[in-house]
Nucleic acid binder design. Structure first.
Lengths: 231, 231
DNA sequence: GTACTAACGGAACTACGGTTCCATTAAGAC
DNA sequence: GTCTTAATGGAACCGTAGTTCCGTTAGTAC
């Protein structure tokens, strides 16, 4: 959100074979320094603000351009659509922040639950997440960026579950990523589906439930050997 | 979705005190018979189809009117906005369908998990749910309709958990609604956030995890007496 | 059956999100 | 410093989602 670097680097080369000139790049790739970088940072910042205020549907790029102090032509040229901009914003949000370590699995799960709850319950962040998730339901690129975002967040916390397996606290064969996901799931379900409050107790329950289920072997990989990989 | 009856009956009388004429009702309330009912049914059906095909953002009411064989003026007059129409659609979806009863809590939770998984994994239904949830992030009325929808679905399955408490299978003081919600949560988390596949194993895990957590007392109401009610 | 009018629907209209054009600014190479 | 041209931004433009107008259709009362 603060600094900026080239986005959309994972573009799969070309959508249709033999389109336009082969070497033509997106704007912003040849001279990514000074102004270009400032524009990108300002626009992503403004996009986050606008999303948090209006939500996904009521959003138009002209408003974002105005907030960013940038011409709307620039925004349309660089990102094209609201969902395209959000995909870039998600890539920017995906950079990991160091997690706390409490030494015990239950303690780490509680810490994770509190962090997720606090993020989703925060007015600005909560709206931002809801908006981004809504956008992902409308656009494949945004959805892919969202999945990468959660992959990186889950991977960041997974070691605490893996260590618990290694020291015998959780059963052998436990899908450790799934343990971490289990902490977030009930909190997101409240945020998006039921609208139940995201209070401290909901976070505590989420961590306790994930821990109890993991100990009972609910996340041990079963039958098929298909789901070995992280998935 | 098939039959139709007056929607928006839970309208809180008037938004602003002293607006327009006091007795003027929404169109469709004075002569709700024949044509009006057919129009409503056709439009809701078409809205579901269009949502499943295009998603929430790419939707316009003129297209829905065309599919329904109805004038677009009528759609705008009756529902006004996409989110307003979706709120009505959700009210229509909220009517409960009888659930299966297997006699054991784990069996019922498994049945619920399979039902939810099948619904969300179905191409049409899955898109429909994602679209409706996306719409709910953008509009308060739609969000309220969505919450009512899940309230009714959860309430439909809650008895199996309550009976389990009564016969001592689950601890006294367990929040039985929360047990049911715990089954859906990981499946919705996959659908909306991580994009992980909604396969049979995910449903099995969801039920197993909810059961294990409930047995371990993770859903027992704690500390504060504030959360006695269903919430 | 007739009368009354709620509700519908086609067509013209409006407003605004999104695009195109081109002059201006400044990044990067030397 | 100069030169080249990538990138920006204002202004005019366009297409379509959403509105208004008003004549037509058909529920409901009698």
């Amino acid at each position: 959100m603060t600094t900026a670097q080239p986005p959309e680097t994972e573009e799969p080369d070309s959508e249709e074979p033999g389109a336009e000139e082969p070497g033509t790049d997106e704007p912003g790739t040849v001279r990514p320094g000074g102004r270009t970088a400032r524009v990108r940072a300002a626009v992503l910042r403004a996009a986050g603000d606008a999303l948090a205020e209006h939500g996904f549907a009521q959003l138009d790029l002209a408003d974002i351009a105005r907030r960013a102090g940038v011409g709307k032509t620039t925004v349309y040229r660089r990102w094209g659509t609201v969902t395209g901009l959000l995909a870039d914003l998600l890539a920017d949000m995906a950079r990991t922040s160091p997690r706390t370590e409490t030494g015990s699995l239950l303690g780490d799960l509680e810490a994770n639950a509190r962090l997720v709850r606090r993020t989703l319950a925060d007015p600005r962040q909560g709206r931002l997440f809801r908006a981004v998730i809504a956008a992902a339901t409308c656009d494949e690129r945004t959805a892919a960026a969202l999945h990468r975002f959660y992959e990186s967040r889950i991977a960041e916390w997974e070691p605490c579950a893996r260590q618990a397996v290694e020291r015998g606290e959780l059963p052998q064969g436990t899908d450790t990523h799934e343990v971490i996901r289990a902490v977030s799931a009930p909190l997101y379900y409240r945020l998006l589906a039921t609208g139940a409050p995201l209070d401290e107790e909901s976070a505590h329950r989420a961590a306790q439930a994930a821990y109890a289920a993991a100990c009972a072997g609910a996340y041990v990989r079963e039958h098929t050997g298909v789901y070995e990989a992280q998935g």
